[in-house]
Write a protein that binds this DNA or RNA. Structure first.
Lengths: 146, 146
DNA sequence: CTGCAACCTGAAGTTCACTTCAACTCAAGG
DNA sequence: CCTTGAGTTGAAGTGAACTTCAGGTTGCAG
């Protein structure tokens, strides 16, 4: 089996055929066609798909994913080095998000300690009342002091 | 200032007035009304709002948030203990998600090492080819071996 | 007491990420 | 060859989470 049908892709990636067509319309993956106009995928498209799914889990929009994938070569099969560059970039994104969530967790733990989640004391909230200068929302989380 | 207007709430929480009305329709927050039918919020509704925003960041749906908030008392102002119970539950959710993302990061790091993200070797992908028995998708991540 | 920014409502619109539908064509095993 | 499961299309539908709009009301500073 040289090229994969849309059904093969769906089975192997866990992404529905309708989603595969959607991703193609949106420029996230590519396919060739048979003489009878059916899609055929190169095996390495599965890698793109895996990447897309991972990004989704991390809460990244398809638009961002498309931009990221645009870094891969158009005219040749991506090499290990291509993927390595992409992965490195994403590891950083991922780490940022993990940091945010850890901060969230620690603050929430602190809140359990003080039993509050209160406006006066809890840095989970801490809006204009005390940090007006830094803008809206839970500033301690989004933009903590160094 | 005893009660807050919708504008005050928006300013202090960073949530738009339209979203506040929406949350109220959806049963996530509550307000009283003036004789002239304008919303007035008790200060502790800001706590609910903070909780909602935090949950959103973690990728939880409003429906889940509503269910969680339903654990708070209807007829009295929530106590520290009420919030503490809720927070403890959420810390667990948060921790699960952090664990998932750390796994993701570690796998991605491994992938940079091997330069692959490849079907044959990379456990970021690993679909039916090798783990058919466990279902679809990147099984090593969603459901890793003990 | 007046002006006007802020508030009200219901309905419709928006974006994202898909799925579903109808009507049709293709490909491959018996 | 023929059947039938898999694939094709464009258009419309879905659900979450809001925003925008039109047309009207309220509340407070001057």
């Amino acid at each position: 089996m040289e090229l994969l049908t849309i059904g093969d892709m769906a089975a192997r990636s866990g992404v529905a055929p309708s989603a595969l067509r959607y991703y193609e319309r949106e420029g996230l993956i590519r396919s060739t066609r048979t003489s009878g106009n059916q899609r055929r995928y190169e095996r390495h498209e599965l890698r793109r798909l895996a990447f897309i799914r991972i990004a989704q889990q991390v809460g990244v929009s398809l638009e961002e994913v498309r931009d990221a994938l645009a870094a891969l070569p158009e005219n040749r099969t991506p090499t290990k080095a291509d993927w390595a560059r992409l992965s490195a970039r994403w590891r950083r994104k991922l780490e940022e998000r993990i940091t945010l969530m850890e901060r969230l967790r620690d603050q929430l733990t602190g809140c359990i300690g003080c039993g509050c989640l209160s406006l006066q004391r809890c840095n989970l909230i801490n809006p204009k009342d005390r940090l007006a200068a830094r803008g809206e929302g839970p500033q301690m989380l989004l933009n903590p002091p160094a």
